[in-house]
Nucleic acid binder design. Structure first.
Lengths: 129, 129
DNA sequence: GATGGGGCTTCCCATTGTGGGAAGGTCAAG
DNA sequence: CTTGACCTTCCCACAATGGGAAGCCCCATC
């Protein structure tokens, strides 16, 4: 299976697949002409990567999860800890963004939003501590 | 006022102040020795930038907001539009992250997290569509 | 007047994950 | 044999920030 097929089969772009290989996450064999050749297990790895990235796991976490995935005897506690740490990071960022959205929406509510120049949004951005 | 004082006075790092200058957001005059010299109005601009960045406005938005801020006759609707678009972007990202956190927390709940290798987190990452 | 320390300057590099694009090799169909 | 669709590697870009080197400047202290 060449990289184009692997891309279509995994849902990743060929560009990204090469990148993940450079990062050491996948290692397809090479044909005599230099083309990458993906086995079914490689495809499974690529799909795993796509799912983990869809959950916004940073590549470093994906690397650890792949190592645990390959390790038949790993402790599920190891996986769980990575996942829960990631959940905490996601929730912290999400809350920070919602707090920003909230205060900005509050400012915008007091801006009449017409042709007049008076705008408490700019006033606050100017005067905040 | 040199860049160190401007940094302390604005709450930005000197590094970032130079970066914002390279981006065209602030233009301090130069002394004969080449040092940047910040006027009180420059400091106000820097503080404005810091507040806008604290609300996660991308630099492009900060640029537009600064232009509107400098424009005494601008329409408040223009500012409001930028702010509300940004609120929508923030909320969309926050919701996406919370959705990811939610499904991952759900997976983790079904992982016993002990020394045994059985872990539905990895199983799902492997098998998802 | 020399020396030392701290501040300033510019320039380059790294980060994270993704994409664009050039230059060149390969293969299959016409 | 040409054409087009692949593939290869390598370099560059993004946004926003930080690290660090090399070199100049200023001021205080000896």
């Amino acid at each position: 299976m060449n990289i184009g097929e692997a891309a279509r089969g995994s849902g990743l772009s060929a560009k990204m697949i090469r990148h993940y290989e450079a990062e050491g996450l996948v290692a397809p064999r090479r044909l005599e002409n230099g083309y990458r050749d993906y086995a079914a297990t490689d495809l499974a790895v690529l799909r795993f990567i796509r799912h983990a990235r869809a959950l916004a796991f940073p590549l470093e976490d994906v690397r650890k999860l792949l190592a645990l995935w390959h390790d038949r005897g790993r402790a599920s506690a190891d996986v769980r800890r990575i996942a829960l740490d990631h959940v905490a990071a996601l929730e912290a960022k999400a809350e920070a963004m919602q707090a920003m959205a909230h205060s900005l929406r509050h400012l915008a509510q007091h801006c009449n939003g017409d042709a007049r120049p008076d705008c408490p949004i700019l006033d606050e951005l100017e005067k905040l501590p």
